[in-house]
């Protein structure tokens, strides 16, 4: 069959138009999505004080309100302390984070703050930073490296402790007996694994409490609702409480419970983790019983660590962020002071 002229190149004028269009699309796409050091995404937050501390911050992206709150906290704290912050958004790609760290090293920054997207693959770039004598502070997630001295310190919440706190609150509220369904986070992710583990540890002493269903809601509202709908139908009348690995899934579950004609927060108790604003609103409305905070406001702690590291002080390898438990009794008082 004579299919010489392909579908996509027909006539010279269209060819020229097409190539111009493709090239311009590619340039725009490259600028917006690929280059971590591109002017749009990289910015100096403070003035031109030559003696100001220069700190590079490689952030994963802006995929959740939790992460935007973390970014804002670090930017605000840098501004407050007069630190020249070089910010780079990796758009969910490790290669962009590695490029950003390389460029921070080339810019001879005083310290690097890194929120690593995955645990592995950091060895070479951390070695370069180490060789250049630049301290690296990890925030909210750890890395797996053969030599711990490649990074200075890790500032993060203890996900296992969060799960345990949720379990203790729920065991107490249930009076030691009840059937729980669990909405897990994204399979394989550190918070999902650890929050499951901590919760199981927390309910272990209570023989009357059982987890009767456990499936993944992938940390989203829509999936949380879908999974809860299925649970309500596969175990009708048996569910006393819901444990969700994050607030968004709990908010989805609340809707599923309402659709089934039950009262969330009363007929079925609900406890979740994160402490986002929507969770506080649901607690004030009496639909969510408890949320365990996972604090994203790491700016102050991160720059305390930077200051100490630059001054040559030794830091503990793990700095654990203190998370608190909030329930309906305190929700109304604190809701206005919540920053995320």
């Amino acid at each position: 069959m004579p299919r010489v002229a392909s579908t996509f190149t027909c006539g010279p004028s269209r060819g020229v138009f097409a190539s111009v269009l493709i090239v311009s699309c590619a340039v725009v796409a490259a600028c917006v999505f690929a280059l971590p050091g591109c002017s749009k995404k990289s910015s100096s937050d403070s003035g031109s004080d030559p003696k100001a501390l220069i700190v590079g911050f490689s952030q994963i992206g802006a995929e959740s309100s939790w992460r935007t709150a973390e970014t804002k906290s670090i930017r605000d704290e840098a501004k407050k302390r007069g630190i020249d912050l070089r910010f780079s958004d990796a758009q969910q790609k490790q290669e962009n984070q590695i490029k950003a760290i390389n460029s921070f090293i080339a810019q001879k920054v005083d310290a690097i703050i890194l929120a690593p997207i995955v645990e592995t693959g950091w060895e070479p770039v951390l070695k370069q930073a180490f060789a250049a004598g630049i301290p690296v502070i990890l925030v909210d997630r750890g890395v797996k490296v053969s030599d711990d001295s490649l990074y200075t310190s890790l500032i993060a919440s203890d996900f296992v402790a969060e799960g345990r706190m949720a379990a203790e609150w729920l065991a107490n509220a249930l009076g030691g007996t009840g059937n729980i369904v669990e909405l897990q986070g994204t399979p394989g992710s550190a918070p999902a694994i650890d929050r499951k583990k901590g919760f199981e540890e927390g309910i272990a002493p209570h023989e009357g409490i059982r987890i009767i269903r456990s499936q993944t809601g992938e940390f989203t509202r829509a999936k949380g609702k879908e999974v809860m709908e299925a649970f309500l139908k596969s175990a009708p009348g048996q569910i006393n409480a819901v444990y969700a690995h994050n607030d968004d899934m709990a908010l989805g579950a609340i809707q599923a419970i309402e659709d089934a004609g039950l009262k969330p927060g009363k007929d079925i108790l609900i406890v979740s983790i994160d402490g986002v604003r929507g969770a506080f609103e649901a607690m004030v409305a009496g639909k969510l019983n408890c949320t365990v905070e996972c604090n994203p406001l790491l700016g102050p702690a991160a720059f305390d660590a930077v200051a100490k590291a630059v001054a040559g002080e030794t830091l503990p390898k793990n700095i654990v962020v203190q998370d608190r438990v909030f329930d309906q009794s305190t929700a109304a008082e604190v809701i206005d002071s919540r920053e995320y």
């Binding site: 996509f8 190149t9 097409a18 917006v32 959740s64």
Partner: peptide
């Protein structure tokens, strides 16, 4: 009209579209 292969043309909007949605919502729910 521009002759871009379908997989490429729609890939552009697949990547950019979610970004546009995030811009509209400021990344918040």
């Amino acid at each position: 009209f521009a002759g871009v292969p379908p997989i490429v043309a729609t890939l552009i909007l697949m990547v950019a579209g979610r970004g546009i949605a995030q811009l509209i919502t400021d990344g918040q729910i």
